[in-house]
Amino acid sequence: MAQRTVLVVLFEGVQSLDVTGPAEVFSGAADPGGDPAYRVSTASLDGAPVRTSSGLTLVPDHSLRALDAAPAPDTLLVPGGLGTRPRRPDLVDWLRVHGPRARRLVSVCTGAILLARAGLLDGRRATTHWAYCDKLARDHPAVRVEPDPIYVRDGSVATSAGVTAGIDLALALVEEDLGRAMALTIARHLVVFLRRPGNQAQFSAQLAAQTASREPLREVQQWITEHPDDDLSVERLAARARLSPRHFARAFQAETGMTPGKYVDRVRVEHARRLLEDTSRGVEEVSRACGYGTPEAMRRAFLKALGTAPAEYRRRFHAPPSTTVLSTSLT
């Protein structure tokens, strides 16, 4: 099996984890004979060392300009970081010419902004770090920005959300190239999940909602997460917080930014998704385990939150990586 090449672009102010996370994934892969499946190299525009946003200095293997006549890499990876804020016309020009030559063009975090400036995302679906999705959409209206998924595949171009999402995307690419067993081996070595699906929202319910400052409300948030199959009515939750239902509902929304009902809905959908993704339990059993009571109730919740039924969600999750990513706004 021919060794695949991965070229990671470096620049001043790059986010170090956007570089090292995917590099560790690709470097951990081996072909059936035990030889490295990928040759990972790095290059800055002029070949000079770059200082990352965290202060680390990375020494590239090559100069991008010196690679003009070299064979195109199998995967060209563009990381993000604070260093994407300057316009960087020379780097953008290089990407505009050489990006389309790679079999696979990948960005991590705000690396998508560099690809967009080079016109490489025009007409495509893409994502980036949640804090920059509005900017990407505003500055590049030809790009179909999807703010929720942790990564998006559109043909030969793949874009991911912030930092650790680059690891998820790299694992998905290894699984596509070498199979699930190899991706699982790497994930175990790095002590990460094998694969968070690209359509998983960048925010879980716990991240999307603010953490309540008062301990009784924090305890209720944790209780909801740990007991999605319990009675999570406002009355029962208020009793746990030792508040009246009216006071509890008002305080919960004031401190978390969402109503108790909406928080419960998010937690239940997320729990149901994990069970559908990671277990073989039937839809009826999953619906009971997540507090829906009936498969029809869970189906309505999925259609409202994800735009698809539970059985279809499971089918798409376990489909080949090239399958179109779902939009997963849980708002």
Rank of each mutant, 00 (worst) to 15 (best):
G33D: 15
G34C: 01
D35S: 14
D35W: 11
D35K: 13
P36M: 08
P36Y: 08
P36S: 10
A37F: 09
A37R: 01
Y38C: 07
Y38N: 09
Y38F: 13
R39I: 05
R39C: 00
V40L: 04
S41P: 09
A43H: 07
S44M: 04
D46R: 15
G47D: 06
A48M: 10
P49Y: 09
P49D: 12
V50N: 05
V50W: 11
V50R: 07
V50P: 06
R51P: 05
R51M: 15
R51S: 12
R51W: 11
T52F: 00
S53N: 15
S53M: 13
S53K: 06
L56N: 10
L56S: 14
V59Y: 13
P60Y: 10
P60F: 06
P60N: 03
P60G: 01
P60L: 01
P60E: 00
D61S: 10
H62F: 11
H62K: 09
S63W: 12
L64F: 05
R65P: 01
A66M: 04
A66R: 13
L67Y: 01
D68Y: 06
D68H: 12
A69Q: 13
A69W: 00
A70N: 02
P71W: 08
P71Q: 07
A72V: 08
P73G: 00
P73S: 04
D74L: 07
L76E: 06
G80W: 01
G81Q: 04
G83M: 13
R88I: 05
P89G: 00
P89W: 02
P89Y: 13
D90V: 11
D90C: 02
V92F: 02
V92T: 14
V92C: 08
V92M: 13
D93T: 14
L95D: 08
V97F: 00
H98L: 03
H98S: 03
P100T: 00
P100H: 14
A102C: 09
V106T: 05
V106N: 04
S107N: 03
S107C: 07
S107E: 00
S107A: 11
S107W: 02
V108I: 15
V108E: 02
A112S: 15
A112V: 05
I113R: 10
L114N: 02
L114W: 08
L115G: 01
A116P: 02
A116G: 06
R117E: 09
R117M: 05
A118H: 07
G119I: 09
G119S: 03
G119C: 07
L120D: 05
L120P: 00
L121D: 13
G123N: 02
G123M: 01
R124Q: 08
R124M: 07
R125N: 05
R125H: 14
